[in-house]
């Protein structure tokens, strides 16, 4: 058996279903999902089929909603129109964005980007430090496990008391919730660097930074991204949650609660549509980055 294949299989290993000792493993199988689709995505006939199914589903919903006339389930055409009215009917020089889009959507996205960015960078940096030393890992592991086990929304009331409402509290909530998966996964990834490669780095006399750049980070990358994906969805959840709390003044979440209090279901649906699209785009973007960074040199031909 060629040892050369050993590493190229590493990303697949990350999909193995069961947990064992690693903290990371609890997220592993979830990462299978995107890669499972990728093979089928390539087929143009499948794309066509999907489009068709999507259109059919929308049409069915439209017909059913029209026939029923329920306030709770408005037809998609009206939802889309409401979304257009609310956010995308602005002047050309604002890229068609309305002032509501500037006041609600962009602040939300900005806070999410800031929180997720802090969590990603901080988590990777701290994860490398923790993962490089067995001692540091043993010291930090139980605390990290606990931190990860706390359902993140539970911390938001505490942060509200300490930081009051507003952007700092929201960014902190997002960052503090999203940091753990990245941190733990990075630490696991760095810790599991092939010992032979560590020897190789020593023999080549790579400096600490070179070692980080050419060995530790690349070999931990699949796990780092598994963590990042989880962190991204937590960031989105916390972005919305921190805006749903009474006391916030702007954001997509605020739009939601505001519409809820006015029983404006059309706007609620429109906001959900917007969030679904945003979530999808962000996930796709992260996956694209991942494929670009890991796909190279890691997949068995």
């Amino acid at each position: 058996m060629s040892e050369g294949q050993k590493d190229s299989r590493a990303p697949d290993d990350a999909r193995t279903p069961t947990p064992a000792r690693s903290a990371l493993s609890s997220h592993r199988p979830d990462r299978s999902a995107p890669s499972a689709t990728s093979a089928r995505d390539a087929h143009p006939s499948h794309l066509l089929l999907r489009l068709l199914v999507l259109l059919l589903a929308l049409a069915a919903w439209q017909l059913a909603a029209d026939a029923h006339g329920s306030v709770y389930f408005p037809p998609p055409s009206r939802i889309a129109h409401r979304a257009y009215e609310l956010w995308f009917s602005g002047p050309v020089r604002h890229l068609f964005l309305t002032s509501a889009a500037f006041e609600d959507v962009l602040p939300s996205l900005g806070r999410m980007a800031a929180g997720f960015g802090i969590a990603a960078l901080g988590g990777i940096a701290a994860g490398v430090v923790v993962g490089r030393s067995r001692w540091a890992y043993a010291v930090c592991n139980p605390v990290l496990q606990f931190a990860r086990a706390v359902p993140p929304p539970a911390l938001v009331p505490v942060l509200v008391v300490v930081l009051d409402f507003g952007t700092p509290m929201q960014i902190t909530s997002i960052a503090f919730s999203a940091v753990w998966p990245v941190l733990i996964n990075t630490a696991e990834g760095v810790r599991n660097t092939d010992p032979l490669r560590i020897d190789v780095a020593a023999v080549l006399r790579l400096g600490p930074l070179e070692r980080l750049r050419f060995l530790l980070l690349p070999s931990a990358l699949p796990r780092i991204f598994a963590g990042l994906r989880l962190s991204l969805s937590l960031s989105l959840i916390l972005m919305v949650f921190s805006e749903l709390l009474p006391g916030t003044a702007d954001g997509i979440g605020f739009t939601l609660t505001d519409a809820q209090s006015r029983s404006d279901l059309l706007t609620v649906w429109a906001a959900l549509l917007l969030l679904g699209v945003l979530g999808h785009l962000l996930n796709t973007a992260l996956l694209a980055v991942e494929r670009r960074l890991i796909g190279r040199g890691r997949t068995t031909p």
């Binding site: 050369g4 050993k6 590493d7 190229s8 092939d194 032979l196 070999s219 190279r296 040199g297 890691r298």
Partner: peptide
């Protein structure tokens, strides 16, 4: 073990 000693990402 050349498969492990070489860095596959380079």
């Amino acid at each position: 073990d050349y498969g492990r000693s070489l860095f596959p990402w380079l």
